[in-house]
Nucleic acid binder design. Sequence first.
DNA 1: CGGTGGATTGACCCAAATCAATTATAGTGG
DNA 2: CCACTATAATTGATTTGGGTCAATCCACCG
Lengths: 248, 248
Amino acid sequence: MLNETLTAAPRSCGDCPIQHRAVCARCDADELAQLDKMKYYRNFEAGQTLIWAGDRMEFVGSVVSGIATLTQTMEDGRTQMVGLLLPSDFVGRPGRGVAPYDVVATTDMVMCCFRMKPFEAMMEATPHISQRLLQMTLDELDAAREWMLVLGRKTAREKIASLLSIIARRNSTLHLEQPTGQIVFDLPLTRDAMADYLGLTLETVSRQVSALKRDGVIELEGKRHVTVPDFHRLLAEAGDDSDGGMLV
Amino acid sequence: MLNETLTAAPRSCGDCPIQHRAVCARCDADELAQLDKMKYYRNFEAGQTLIWAGDRMEFVGSVVSGIATLTQTMEDGRTQMVGLLLPSDFVGRPGRGVAPYDVVATTDMVMCCFRMKPFEAMMEATPHISQRLLQMTLDELDAAREWMLVLGRKTAREKIASLLSIIARRNSTLHLEQPTGQIVFDLPLTRDAMADYLGLTLETVSRQVSALKRDGVIELEGKRHVTVPDFHRLLAEAGDDSDGGMLV
DNA sequence: CGGTGGATTGACCCAAATCAATTATAGTGG
DNA sequence: CCACTATAATTGATTTGGGTCAATCCACCG
């Protein structure tokens, strides 16, 4: 399942489900103790906007469980999703006072928040955090560039296949499996959110999902539960390289 | 002029035109001396491919002068530019052995290269470099996300206006001016490269450039020399926020 | 000069947007 | 338990922005 059963904050960092992938992954016991003093957990409900673009940011933090989206909006209302935040992903930018994007919870969420000021001070003092954050940011940059190819050059059908394969891949790496053969997962996004991510309309998303289903690339149970009988077939539909390509 | 007259390597870091913006910007004299031991300059000619996607990377480095592009290619030949590298921008990723994108010089270039291994070791030891690199990477991530909106939701006309305003802005920040009123610059890209950046065909680029010219948004002298009589008008054509929006 | 590569312009076509109507699906309260 | 909404999703008909194919045009250079 994509939505972890965890809906409450972990008892301590030792129990934290994201301790090995989050921004604090490299911290030693001392450093974790320091972080503990500036951190607090917050719960958000599905649909809730965590941060509005233009707001003052008073915290940064990690997604502990649940899923959020980063979205950019033009004055005339056109929107483009620019990020999908899964457990262990980092929210906010040290040193920046104002949020550039809307951050919206698509499921119930738990966040581990750090007060901005002390966190920034700690980043100056201990290299472990900024080193880890650098790694994570470089990964996000790669993902963003991958997404630029999707937005700029792929057909609607390829876009849908790309999104499905990305969700499938992220989902299975969370569970430490290699994505091959049959894969099953739940879509964390509505058709509308998928359209925002893909630079399409929701009608086109719906049509192409139906087409992929008709052609046997995917199977649907309800609107959200997806079975991919052959992951390689899906990758081929996405226009992605035969297999490899993926930089982890 | 966009192309700095500098075509040779600087004598020393003190003479370096990018010393205040590059990855080494925060380094003290000691650290610069350390870097000096692992660095070497390389010249590239316009059109030359610095790095092929899939190649082993044996160096990382900074653009000292000139302009390069980062490009992703699908097996069937569709290409998408995913980055524009200007002086002071960083090339390569510490810790990564294989290049994910083609890097191509669009003008003659000088690069300040660091041998990968010692550079990585130094990053572990001195926080100044990874802190600066983190800042730069976060800026690039913002730029990439800005670009996702352009690719996903803007019309061809807006895309052209967006590209022109980005080049104008970057160009004038290099010269420490505020972009207002009349702006003059040289396009560093061919129509074809612009199309690769914008997710368009070169014919559409040509048509929309002509349209913007016809409508008085820009003036052209030859194919490359651009005059923008009213920068705000250009921003409005780009669909960008009335003025602000820009996160520096 | 003719040639070559970049750029422009025109005619036509198609993939995805838009406009519009139905069809699930999930509550909610009588 | 069944109407009565409200929201998400599907499907159809039509339009359109940008792609494709093709014919010049232009500037520079040997």
